[in-house]
């Protein structure tokens, strides 16, 4: 089966303000995602995972550019495409969910308007048909469809907004969905449910998912493959089972140990305990981050 995304030896550089210095942000990043597969890209902040997502989407900030490597989407070399042509993929072929639920929709426009705008951008449907499709998907993500359709984004809770964002990402049945830390801004319980929903919708649509996270625990439950990123490089990329059993890279092991005991994962936890555990885990991750910050960059 042909992969949906093939990233090979990708390097992204930042242009320094003065002179011709180029600061490498990610180097030699390679991975593939097949239809129906969920690949989790895990790493601490600043490891380059969001830059990688930006490169896959073609939405890098102006100061960043792709130095070398190749990026194929459904077999096509999209780096050779014009910006406009690549933009055409977004929304219809590539869906997207971002970290900050506050910024997932324009605050001045009603949800319904923004959903139908998106549908009608990619498909020539009548307003009524577009509305039906939007309502159907709001229903899919277990929201009160009519009410959400007529709401402004600020009238919804964080979880509701991320659900709506998921509906928007999946609505047009894309081949790939990029979820950039979709649960970081949410509380643990809501975050868990959003990830469950993501996995559920993925099954239904059959798309590939690139899930970006700093949270190994979150992703090991659901991802098929885990890629661990550190200082702009992928240090380990393995099937989740392999990572769980014997992570080879010392950094992955550090991340694994930054989580609570492995037995917690497999045991059927009740939610109360989980919340307690996860607050401990956050302290652990923070500790790792501060350690890593002291190391000189490669």
């Amino acid at each position: 089966m042909r992969p949906i995304v093939e990233v090979e030896a990708l390097c992204v550089q930042a242009l320094a303000k003065r002179g011709k210095d180029r600061i490498p942000l990610i180097q030699d990043v390679s991975f593939q995602i097949h239809p129906g597969e969920m690949l989790a890209l895990v790493g601490e902040s600043g490891s380059g995972k969001s830059v990688t997502a930006g490169a896959v989407l073609g939405l890098l900030p102006n100061a960043l550019h792709i130095g070398s490597g190749s990026l194929r989407f459904q077999g096509e070399d999209v780096l050779a495409w014009t910006e406009k042509k690549r933009r055409g993929l977004l929304g219809s072929q590539i869906g997207c969910v971002f970290q900050d639920y506050q910024g997932s929709f324009t605050p001045f426009r009603k949800i319904g308007k923004q959903l139908t705008e998106m549908i009608r951008t990619h498909h020539s449907l009548s307003k009524a048909t577009a509305k039906d499709l939007a309502l159907e998907w709001l229903d899919q993500v277990a929201l009160p469809a009519e009410r959400v359709y007529d709401s402004y984004p600020f009238q919804l809770s964080g979880g509701q907004r991320q659900r709506t964002a998921l509906a928007a990402a999946m609505m047009l049945r894309p081949a790939l969905v990029v979820a950039d830390e979709p649960t970081t801004a949410l509380d643990v319980l809501t975050g868990e449910r959003v990830l469950d929903l993501l996995a559920e919708l993925q099954m239904q649509v059959g798309c590939a998912v690139l899930l970006i996270s700093h949270d190994l625990r979150h992703v090991m439950k659901r991802a098929d493959t885990v890629a661990v990123m550190k200082d702009g490089r992928i240090v380990e990329c393995e099937a989740t089972e392999m990572i769980r059993r014997r992570a080879s890279h010392p950094y992955t092991q550090t991340l694994l140990h930054a989580r609570p005991l492995l037995t917690d994962l497999d045991a059927g936890l009740d939610w109360e305990n989980e919340e307690v555990v996860s607050s401990e885990r956050h302290e652990g991750v923070d500790g790792v981050e501060s350690l890593a910050d002291r190391e000189p960059a490669v």
Binding site: L57, L59, G91, T121
Partner: peptide, 17 residues
């Protein structure tokens, strides 16, 4: 420079819109 603009672009909304 707001997040919601990036989100709108990521949904493929035309630049003039």
């Amino acid at each position: 420079s707001q997040e919601y603009i990036r989100a709108a672009r990521a949904r493929g909304i035309a630049e003039w819109r």
